[in-house]
Simulated scan of single mutants.
Amino acid sequence: MNQTTKVHGWAFLLPVIAVLIWSLNIAVTRYAVDLISPASISFYRWLIAFIVLTPFMLKSVWRKRHLVRQHMGQLAILSAFGMVLYQGLAYTAAHYTTATNMGIVNAFIPVFTIFVSMLILKEIPNLFAILGSAISFFGLLYILSKGDLSQLAQMGGHWGDLLMMVAVFFYAFYGVFLKKWQLQIPLLISLYVQIGFALIYHIPFLLYFGLDPINAQNAPSLFYAGIFPSLVAPLLWMLAVQQIGPNRTSIFMNLVPVFTAIIASLWLAEQWTIEHSIGGIMILLGIIMAQKKAARVISQQAP
């Protein structure tokens, strides 16, 4: 019994570290806006991850090539939603909003997942999910309007937040598709193949926007994004899911806006206002309520 308790206590550190890495990546995304274009940083992120994984995964993928071929279309769709649409829009949103707001909007993944599940899996949300989602959404509007909801009519200042909401909505599709298909393929192979598709998807964007060179200013951001949030954090998250279960692990995603706000305040000098506090509390309370007796949250891999 004591051994089980020790293992569980150690396992709870895994999602905390993973969320901290993802939160720092949001700040890195905001920091790099003047150093490299969204298409370039997104491409380099997955290229670096692909290069690092290839020596370890190439043989495994070849041995499982029949299984990979069987799920090729599904892996291509997962890559499009989770790695290209979500991450690409997030990098673009960083040009128009703060890292603090990006972290807050990112916390909507569990809520959006519930409603995407309703569309795709025909899972009807219960009263807790509906009320919790409404409270969270009102909290977000309160933050975006800086406490004055009448200012929402002037949407010009909120394009970054809207782009981030669309990005999170696409990631909710990613999670629901994971649940719907239940792919019988090793997680690392799935991750590797999805990264390969992501690189292919970037080709049209690079042909249109061009590819910025790697230099001394943007290299640290690129290598952090390519290794830690792309490889280390997903592995820690997968281990956490195995150790403490998907539902308990998913709760830790609520720490993203908290960690992001702290990092952005210390590093990017972003101000945490009373509106952030009030709206943030409403968002977290709503998310917790929405998950109560609601459909299971997908948490095999987070952003």
Rank of each mutant, 00 (worst) to 15 (best):
M57S: 05
V193I: 13
S250L: 01
A240V: 06
I51C: 11
S265H: 05
L187M: 13
W181Q: 01
H276E: 10
Y208L: 07
I135F: 08
K64F: 01
M165F: 15
I109L: 09
W10I: 06
A269E: 15
W237A: 07
L211W: 12
F205S: 05
F108C: 07
L266M: 02
T260V: 08
P55E: 09
I17P: 14
W159Y: 08
T100A: 04
L13I: 05
K122Y: 03
Y201D: 10
F12M: 14
L24I: 07
A219R: 01
L89V: 03
W10K: 04
G88L: 00
L152E: 12
I77G: 01
V232D: 10
S145M: 11
L131N: 09
F259L: 10
F115P: 15
M164H: 10
I185D: 14
A94L: 11
S60M: 00
I203Q: 10
G210M: 11
K179Y: 09
L131H: 04
M289K: 00
S23P: 12
N126P: 13
W10A: 11
M155Y: 11
G9H: 09
I288S: 08
L207G: 02
I195M: 06
G147L: 09
P15K: 04
L127A: 04
M155C: 04
A167I: 02
F43D: 13
I120S: 08
L236I: 02
F115L: 15
P246V: 03
L121N: 03
K122D: 07
W62Y: 06
M118I: 00
V105C: 02
Q74H: 07
S150Q: 12
L266F: 06
F169G: 08
H158Q: 13
A172D: 14
M282L: 15
A225Y: 03
P110E: 06
Y201R: 02
M165R: 05
G88W: 00
L149P: 05
W181G: 02
P125A: 05
W272C: 01
D161P: 00
I281W: 10
I274R: 08
F170R: 00
Y86W: 08
